[in-house]
Design a protein around this nucleic acid. Structure first.
Lengths: 361, 361
DNA sequence: TCAAGATGATAATTCGTATTATCATCTTGA
DNA sequence: TCAAGATGATAATACGAATTATCATCTTGA
């Protein structure tokens, strides 16, 4: 029984004797076994070299098998291998909107950089769940024929994620991690979020240090957890006199400044240009006449002329750690499954001490 | 036998009666079979709905099975399906570099927009083959444990793609489409490329129309197919006197202009700023003293002050059509598997008639 | 009434690999 | 010389899904 049987006709035939069609069949352990006159099991044992667990292979046979493997260039079918150990090493990525938006500036991109980086490191593939059917303008996780279970686990991206979806993920025991903090939904939700509350509070601290006393928060402060967190952080650090404005409009801004507000905090950093425009119309200068703090960094292109004071969301790191947590969940390892990462404060040029005398007594 | 047996204890046990450990098991056809009181084979038959081949299922059982599938959210394990040589509606995306680069301006992004758009339309998921091991700084398609076969087929992205890899893809009969034209590699390569040759020739035509007679091509004109195509297009349309400069450097540019060249064609659009800077140093104005044509559009940020004359590579559409071709290949449908899409010419401001008298006789 | 055909479901096998239990055969030691 | 232990390999099975051949059961027609 020699190696060159590889060239024999019987190697060209399948078990049943039907000739292999034009395309060459890939070499399997069975082939190696035939070539070296052993059983398929032996080949597998040689390959996995399980010295432990009391598996013994005669050096002689071992060599014979290894030689056949070398000569044929056999490599294990990764699919079959994975099938046998029930781990597909596929990480699903779900977003309610397209992952690759046409818009120039990309909201998801930084997260994905981190996710890809860590997936690569862990030899995982990423499955973008683009097949999820779109209903009412957004993709649905759990629609008829949902393929979310194709992946071993899933990373969820998006500003707001349906609570019912989260509850169902938990209920159905589908491993997942949310990028961005989420409230409990029928159980604790694993997440890697940015610590908006702490960062917002810190920004308030800076404003107070600079001498501001009359502050205002502009934004809904509800809906997505990230909004609520900002408002909570703001409220926790701001004096009781702080105002709140649910939405941005010129009239309200007029009123606020008339009432003596010297610093406004924008829940939505993308609103900076609007405030800037409003100020220009009124002949007010930022920050001389009014300080503006962005509670985050702009996700949409913002006027270049203004370097807003605010903080940076560690997007890449969030994506990175989300994969880390997911991996731990899949391995059944212990992990901190709810993480809040600190934001880096950004000085910018829109926060300065208030003009004296503008503060009403 | 009702669906709520899902909650029964025996569902929590494996066949052998050993309790399922902490690790979740994915729902299998066997589970569905138990739930609906049929055999695994029946479940498979229902799923694959083989009305042909004389397979009959009673509507009643069919419904029962489908109900169980709906209630459990069952999806077939993609690995098992591939092992059995079936399709999963998963399109692989392979790039030699990370799909999501850290750099702001993203080379792959526009292609991916098109790919995702079409994948979504066809209810396919995208598998980013991030698990491919990195050797010598680039991912390898065919390394030990390559999981490329996990996808039904694959879209290849990248300026230059390894010829041997292409050959092996063909040899192993793995359906794929290259984004960007590729030379044959052991067989015709399916691709969706940009028609650089035609676009380059067209740009030469414009320069000639404007009165230019002495032209120069700057670039290697070899390596990636896209470079060769540009040079070929240029050469086909340019007069025999046209010069060629393999790489960009100040001295050579000096020489070219001294020799009377009035228009340069840049293989690499990203070189525009360099030429612009050189011109500024020499006190030359573009296009008054020298016309500059970019053979493509910049993939890297380019000085904003110069709107280069050139053409636009239809990236989104290339991605879109790549998926279209791949789908056709998978379906075994007839298609034009090698496509060159036209580029849109962009007027810009860097091409103008040459200053009179500068042309040597 | 009984064979032939229609109907509906299943057992068995395949894909390629991993693992466990089992089975021969050969050494020892007393 | 015979049982106990060591040694080396294999059979059997699992993983999850697809498919073919087979087997019951029920209709129908003459």
């Amino acid at each position: 029984m020699t190696i060159d049987r590889l060239a024999d006709t019987d190697y060209q035939l399948t078990e049943k004797g039907t000739p292999v069609s034009g395309t060459r069949r890939r070499v399997t352990q069975r082939d190696i076994a035939r070539l070296s006159g052993v059983s398929q099991a032996t080949v597998s044992l040689v390959l996995n070299n399980r010295l432990d667990a009391g598996v013994r292979i005669a050096p002689e046979t071992r060599e014979r098998v290894l030689r056949a493997i070398r000569e044929t260039g056999y490599v294990a079918d990764p699919l079959a291998r994975r099938l046998a150990d029930r781990n597909n090493r596929i990480i699903g990525v779900f977003t309610y909107e397209p992952v690759f938006p046409s818009g120039t500036r990309d909201f998801y991109h930084p997260f994905l950089v981190g996710i890809e980086e860590n997936a690569e490191r862990r030899s995982c593939d990423l499955l973008l769940l683009t097949s999820a059917p779109v209903q009412d303008g957004r993709r649905r996780i759990f629609a008829e024929g949902s393929r979310i279970r194709l992946a071993d686990g899933c990373v969820l991206l998006g500003r707001d994620i349906d609570r019912d979806d989260l509850a169902r993920l938990i209920e159905e025991d589908i491993p997942f991690v949310s990028v961005g903090r989420r409230d409990d939904a029928g159980g604790p939700v694993p997440y890697v979020g940015a610590d908006y509350a702490a960062a917002s509070a810190a920004m308030v601290g800076r404003a107070l240090d600079a001498g501001h006393r009359e502050l205002a928060y502009i934004g809904r402060g509800e809906g997505p957890e990230s909004y609520a967190d900002r408002l909570r952080g703001f409220t926790s650090a701001a004096p009781g006199t702080a105002r709140r404005l649910p939405a941005l409009d010129a009239a309200s801004l007029d009123r606020l400044t008339a009432e003596g507000v010297t610093a406004v905090f924008l829940e939505e950093p993308a609103d900076v240009p609007a405030v800037s425009a409003w100020a220009a119309e009124r002949g007010l200068r930022i920050p001389a006449d009014l300080s503006v703090v962005a509670l985050g960094d702009p996700t949409r292109p913002v006027s270049i002329d203004l370097d807003a004071t605010g903080f940076t969301i560690p997007r890449r790191d969030m994506g990175l750690q989300a994969v880390e947590v997911l991996d731990a969940l899949l391995e059944g390892a212990e992990t901190q499954a709810q993480r809040l990462l600190p934001c880096e404060l950004h000085d910018g040029t829109t926060l300065a001490p208030p003009a004296t005398g503008r503060n009403p007594s």
